[in-house]
């Protein structure tokens, strides 16, 4: 378990993921009683022992996301990873990175060229910039979610583990949910013409892996926690640190928490 000590962004979930190595080849075909998904295959651990079949019960999880703004280097690895993992269409974003420059007089210069996917270039701003930082964003998977609330056909829904997901087969493409999301997390997919958004890589979570953005973040700025897991480090940080939410005045009860995040962030 040397990995745990050398990478401070490791969560219990990452450890599980390491154990379930080779899970990429897993099919999630059997669907047991109740909510439990049971994978058909067994998996090999790193040392070669066989684990499984891997069981995943959505009701036994509630994911939280923690973003440490001070650790984000704005490399855009998460955006590129998300794009590959979820086949996100160009110029639309399930996750993105914003850059803020704030002048001494409180003037805010924000940008996010192509969602940060292609990295950032140095920017000349004719002002006395006193603080600047990168802010990763993704769907907040709100508990009191405005988007699923006003989906007229039940195509946007909240899964048992609290993820806000879209049923592409029932979505009529009215884009009401896109209007309702205060965070700009949703878009209408240019090919399927249905609403599309971050799934928190639920297809990876169900196989014991972490999300593509968390896994590919080189600095641990993004972390995933599980409030139903015992002794979860991320849950502990959220409980004990000075965290903030985005647009808390809307009472959407987001599940993405930000630490070291300045108030200019929208």
């Amino acid at each position: 378990m040397s990995r745990d000590t050398r990478r401070n962004d490791f969560t219990r979930r990452d450890f599980l993921a390491t154990a379930a190595k080779g899970a990429g080849a897993l099919g999630l075909v059997v669907f047991g009683g109740g909510f439990a998904f049971v994978s058909a295959n067994t998996v090999k651990s790193r040392t070669g022992e066989t684990i499984g079949p891997f069981e995943y019960d959505p009701t036994k999880h509630e994911y939280l996301y923690l973003i440490d703004v001070s650790k984000c280097i704005g490399c855009g690895s998460c955006v590129r990873a998300c794009e590959r993992e979820n086949d996100v269409p160009r110029h639309y974003f399930r996750t993105l990175v914003e850059r803020y420059h704030v002048s001494r007089h409180g003037r805010v210069y924000a940008d996010s060229p192509n969602g940060g996917r292609d990295g950032f270039d140095a920017k000349d701003i004719d002002a006395d910039i006193t603080k600047s930082f990168f802010v990763p964003k993704l769907c907040n998977h709100c508990t009191n979610t405005p988007c699923a609330q006003l989906c007229p056909v039940g195509a946007s829904f909240v899964s048992p583990e609290g993820l806000v997901l879209v049923d592409e087969e029932r979505c009529i493409g009215c884009s009401y949910c896109v209007q309702a999301c205060p965070y700009g997390s949703r878009f209408i997919h240019p090919v399927t013409h249905t609403a599309s958004k971050c799934t928190l890589c639920c297809h990876r979570l169900s196989k014991g892996l972490t999300t593509a953005c968390v896994q590919n973040c080189p600095t641990g700025a993004r972390r995933l926690g599980d409030s139903k897991a015992v002794g979860d480090e991320v849950v502990e940080i959220i409980a004990t640190s000075n965290v903030r939410l985005l647009k808390p005045e809307l009472h959407t009860e987001p599940k993405c928490y930000y630490v070291n995040c300045s108030q200019e962030v929208r």
């Binding site: 409180g106 210069y109 700009g184």
Partner: peptide, 19 residues
């Protein structure tokens, strides 16, 4: 302190959804 900020749109916000 609040000067008017630079024009910044959320990257998914470039389209008028309701026409």
């Amino acid at each position: 302190m609040h000067e008017q900020a630079m024009n910044f749109l959320f990257p998914n916000d470039f389209h008028i959804m309701w026409s």
